[in-house]
């Protein structure tokens, strides 16, 4: 549905295994995980905390290397972060640079790139306008509320028009009102740009509300135990979508598979 011209990348995860070394012993976190994401698709990754969701997306981001198997983006094997990757985590206060103003934080992805000052300025103010922060450009992140800081992080991720957007528990530290608002904001933006999106969340409702498809990680080491298509109509509307009987049915189904 979101196949416009600047549509996102495809992603293949094939027989992925990742281990961590603890006290000299290899502890497998993920083992034998495979799934595909098509261009412009919004995939939610659910599972209990500590199951390996963040590890999975960090490896897709090219921040950690798998022990076995491979991750390909548009058929290229990932060995380092791809160009124009959008990455937003739960800890906005730790990933924004406190020594830079909001607009300079958002302009960071242009560092070391061939782009004219004028264009950079336009792109930054566009991104800030998209998240509703055009009036806060000259403030510093620590002068903003949590929700506004996360908007800055979202603007910073979207300013390069990413082909892949990774959201790792992006709204988990925010109150419920801000969360619903930002869910709609992000949904609207990624659908407009056709961005392939990975959303890590432990919130089942959020996963169903936002995603085209939800996969569930469970077990130690973790593997995908279910892969559920979300055939709810778009555009999604908070209270309406959430009270759709199909939504409630998916919710039960997901809940059962996470608990399994």
């Amino acid at each position: 549905m979101s196949q416009d011209i600047d549509s996102g990348v495809t992603l293949q995860v094939n027989d992925l295994a990742i281990s961590f070394s603890r006290n000299g012993q290899d502890v497998p976190v993920i083992d034998g995980l495979s799934f595909d994401v098509s261009a412009g698709e919004i995939l939610a990754v659910c599972g209990q905390s500590g199951i390996g969701k963040s590890t999975l997306v960090r490896s897709i981001a090219g921040l950690i290397s798998p022990h076995r198997g491979e991750i390909s983006i548009d058929s290229n094997v990932v060995r380092e972060p791809i160009e124009n990757l959008g990455f937003v985590t739960q800890d906005y206060s730790r990933s924004l640079f406190p020594w830079l103003s909001v607009e300079k934080n958002v302009a960071l992805p242009f560092k070391g790139r061939e782009i004219s000052k004028a264009e950079r300025k336009v792109r930054v103010s566009q991104a800030l306008a998209e998240v509703g922060l055009e009036d806060s450009a000259r403030l510093y992140p620590w002068q903003l509320s949590g929700g506004m800081q996360q908007r800055v992080a979202i603007a910073r991720a979207l300013v390069v028009k990413p082909k892949l957007l990774i959201l790792d528990e992006p709204f988990a530290s925010l109150d419920v009102y801000v969360r619903l608002e930002l869910e709609d904001l992000v949904l609207n933006l990624v659908q407009t740009h056709g961005t392939t999106t990975l959303l890590v969340t432990h919130d089942i409702d959020e996963a169903i509300y936002m995603a085209d498809r939800v996969i569930v990680l469970s077990g130690t080491p973790a593997d995908s135990t279910s892969d559920i298509s979300v055939n709810l109509p778009r555009p999604r509307v908070q209270m309406e979508t959430r009270s759709n009987p199909a939504f409630l049915q998916l919710r039960n189904q997901l809940h059962a598979s996470i608990r399994a």
């Binding site: 921040l63 990455f87 070391g112």
Partner: peptide
């Protein structure tokens, strides 16, 4: 992590 993503 973020500076790696920015390819610094």
């Amino acid at each position: 992590d973020y500076s790696k993503i920015l390819k610094f």
